[in-house]
Design a protein around this nucleic acid. Structure first.
Lengths: 341, 341
DNA sequence: CTGTTAGCGCCTTCAG
DNA sequence: CTGAAGGCGCTAACAG
């Protein structure tokens, strides 16, 4: 059957394409009865404007791109919900692309995004990214960008983050005050902004409490999770004096929990574990995993709001629009009944 | 600065736009040295073709749409990974849209998808959807669709599912053989295909073992999770004789676990719980949650493969291409030391 | 091998 | 208030 487009509507109504177009946009310069006739036929034929044709003509895609490392991660999944909510309200589509924490893919994705696909970008940079030329090149294509969580210091724009330094400091302090003397720190990548801030919080908390920072207690995770499990196991076996672990990302926290159980190290009496995590199940583990939980949904919302405001007002994004939201520290107690003595 | 498009390249090289276009597509009918000149300038100027212009002209978007209820759900997150993997290999983009299990949103999303945005669709239908006219209308727009997990029986196309009936039967049988006499069943929606199959598996397992099916033990969950928690709590309080629970979806399994702990009902001695779940942490709960785990990643891969094959060969999708993958049943034992008597 | 021409579907001047 | 015409960037048919 013939496609239903403006031309078709125009023919059936004996109108010009221009008038139909205007009627559907509720333009002032078209009689209300014509509008009615047009709208009636449009709904009758189930007319759907061709988004790409419109984009091409108006040089506007009404789409925002979201570039993140992964989606099988509760933090990012929740952030997407927040982003999508805000975008939908403004009539924007959301185009999600996953870097899988791979630099080459990130570059390729950004390159694709420059082809008129999106009006703006929300991004959390991949852990392997060290060169930011691809991100900087977005400026030349006039694609505004807002970073969230994993930000890029070198690019001057708005960033939505959590108080990484403070919450890492508090988490570490929590372990110290609970009596830990040898606290390991697990992180993913050094060059990641969040890695730096969280590590600094860890270090400063140790120093503030008169503990020394032992570099051999700092473990850098890798991409593959089974390898991480092995690394953590090695560390805990090599250093049985470790009595506390602060994990910088969800996966490492979960893996640590697994390894501790496997090695028969009792949590939290023998070794205490706290990690960044948005996993609901963390609270149900027994003993429950103490966590630093980021307001993922709100982070997504705020980042999207900043971007959409800029797009709608066609104004540049200023670094001063950045926001820092607060994480919540859950110091969880075991629910297990005390063993009968 | 002026945009870098074919016209610009053509001007700088003193070539026609057509030749440049052909060169970039590595057409046979263009000299290799011209190709070189064109490619050199293209990379120098960082030329990026306008995807939507190309789509418009070729009537091909090189994009597949993925319509799912939510992304903050491990099953769907993993499925997306599988889809994305396959799509990327074939040079397709993935446009994800979330229905939030809301019928109206689903209709609106499908309608949008008909506007030339996508060449084909992968879909898991919303739990509230009872009328499938919007899905059927895709046929008129020549948009092929493959269902996965939550399929629509009324639409004749390929579907990728798991052996829902068998795994529900086995899960229930597992509870019976472990000694349960009053097994509750929690599900989300009656009209959902998976809900029906899983419920049938539950019923048949009961009957096969000479137990009767008590309708008052079947609980229909709702959208809001806190309400579900309340419903489950009510059920367990009202029916203290319940000694087993089979949850049809991840959320309900987790919520059941939470309620049992809250009510002080010991798992698995006092009450046994098994649920569909892809949550890694389910295995770390103590006692661990027995689960039916679907091969989410493979489901995504297979569904995408079927769709892409059809798109690439421009052939229709046949129901006979459907696939049924197998879930894994994890009957988890508590790792807790047996209480000293 | 290369150039010219004619659109894809839509929006937006400019003329009536 | 309505219509005619041009063009967004790209591709494909048709000439040379």
């Amino acid at each position: 059957m013939p496609p239903v487009n403006l031309k078709r509507l125009a023919q059936e109504l004996n109108l010009s394409i221009a008038s139909v177009s205007r009627a559907l946009q509720d333009s002032h310069e078209v009689s209300s009865q014509t509008k009615e006739r047009v709208r009636a036929l449009a709904t009758a034929l189930n007319y759907q404007p061709h988004a790409y044709a419109s984009s091409l003509r108006r040089n506007l895609s009404k789409t925002i791109g979201v570039v993140i490392p992964k989606v099988a991660n509760h933090f990012f999944a929740l952030a997407i919900n927040g982003i999508e909510e805000v975008a939908r309200q403004s009539g924007f589509q959301v185009l999600i692309s996953l870097t899988h924490d791979d630099y080459a893919r990130e570059v390729s994705i950004i390159q694709h995004m420059k082809g008129g696909r999106v009006d703006g970008l929300l991004m959390s940079v991949a852990s392997g990214t060290e060169d930011f030329a691809h991100i900087k090149s977005l400026r030349e294509s006039n694609i505004p960008i807002v970073f969230f969580d994993r930000v890029c210091a070198e690019v001057s724009t708005a960033k939505v983050t959590t108080n990484d330094y403070e919450s890492a400091f508090q988490a570490t302090e929590h372990l110290i005050q609970a009596g830990c003397r040898r606290i390991a720190h697990l992180l993913i990548s050094n060059n990641l902004s969040i890695g730096q801030f969280r590590q600094q919080g860890y270090r400063d908390a140790l120093l503030a409490h008169g503990c020394d920072v032992d570099p051999t207690l700092i473990l850098h995770g890798v991409m593959d999770n089974e390898q991480n499990v092995a690394l953590i196991r090695d560390l805990l076996l090599r250093r049985p004096d470790i009595d506390g672990v602060f994990a910088s990302v969800e996966r490492l926290a979960i893996s640590t929990y697994r390894v501790c159980k496997e090695l028969g190290r009792t949590i939290p009496d023998d070794i205490k574990v706290i990690g960044f995590s948005n996993l609901e199940a963390a609270s149900m583990l027994d003993p429950p995993l103490s966590t630093v939980t980021q307001p993922a949904y709100d982070i997504g919302r705020e980042a999207a709001k900043i971007l959409l405001r800029a797009l709608e007002k066609k104004k540049a994004i200023l670094p001063s629009q950045s926001q820092v939201l607060k994480s919540e520290l859950f110091q969880r107690q075991s629910t297990a009944a005390a063993p009968a003595r």
